[in-house]
Amino acid sequence: MTEEKKIVEGTATNDCGQQVPVGTMNTNQALSLPQGMDVSLSHPDREAGADEFMSRDELRLLTEPWIEPVGYRFPAPISEDSADRLVKAKAAARNVLEEIIASANEAGWATREIVVALIEAANSLNDAASADSDPDHADDPDVSDAVQAQIGHEEQFD
């Protein structure tokens, strides 16, 4: 039985900063494009020409068969105070991350490589959230001030 190979459209950024078409290809071909090439790829489950593009890493996460969603849940916030919410969120995140790292260790991943991968994934999600113009998230607190306030106060990643 053959595996279905989904088709994506690819664009690359040229020297002038413009997006130029690379062509249509299956997801394996798209993931094999040279690493130095700045590419955007269409979503493999959307109609052609839908203009919903993603990075190579996002496509890999979406299509790699061995990557499964992790089923950890966060507790609901119980405070309205932003400083208290940040403390609780950090504690909950740390608990979940410790479980993810333990699970990754059991699967054969080194702690350091998983921590680096988690940091890069978090930065990517933060960048996407910063670019999100969704009005539903307009009330989300800006954590940059809270992060700055933690620097020098014995946090692990100062």
Rank of each mutant, 00 (worst) to 15 (best):
Q29E: 08
T11F: 09
A128H: 03
W66N: 15
D15I: 05
A146P: 13
L61S: 11
M1H: 10
S55F: 01
A138M: 12
H153D: 03
E98P: 12
G71I: 14
R56A: 00
D57H: 12
E120D: 03
I119A: 03
A121K: 11
A122V: 10
G108W: 00
A117L: 00
V143R: 14
L31Y: 10
P34G: 03
V8A: 00
N26I: 03
T27C: 06
L31F: 01
N126L: 07
E98F: 13
E155G: 15
D81G: 00
P34K: 05
D51P: 12
S103Q: 15
A91G: 07
H43N: 09
L61Q: 08
F53V: 06
I119L: 05
Q19H: 07
E52R: 05
D145E: 12
V87K: 12
E58R: 13
H43M: 04
V70G: 03
D57Q: 00
G152T: 00
F53C: 08
I101W: 05
M37C: 06
Q29H: 09
D142E: 08
L61G: 11
D51L: 02
V115R: 09
E106I: 14
G23V: 04
V87Q: 07
D38H: 01
G152H: 01
A102F: 01
A107F: 07
T13C: 04
H43V: 12
E9M: 06
W66H: 11
H43F: 11
I100W: 05
Q148F: 13
L31N: 02
L97T: 10
P77E: 05
A104M: 02
V116N: 01
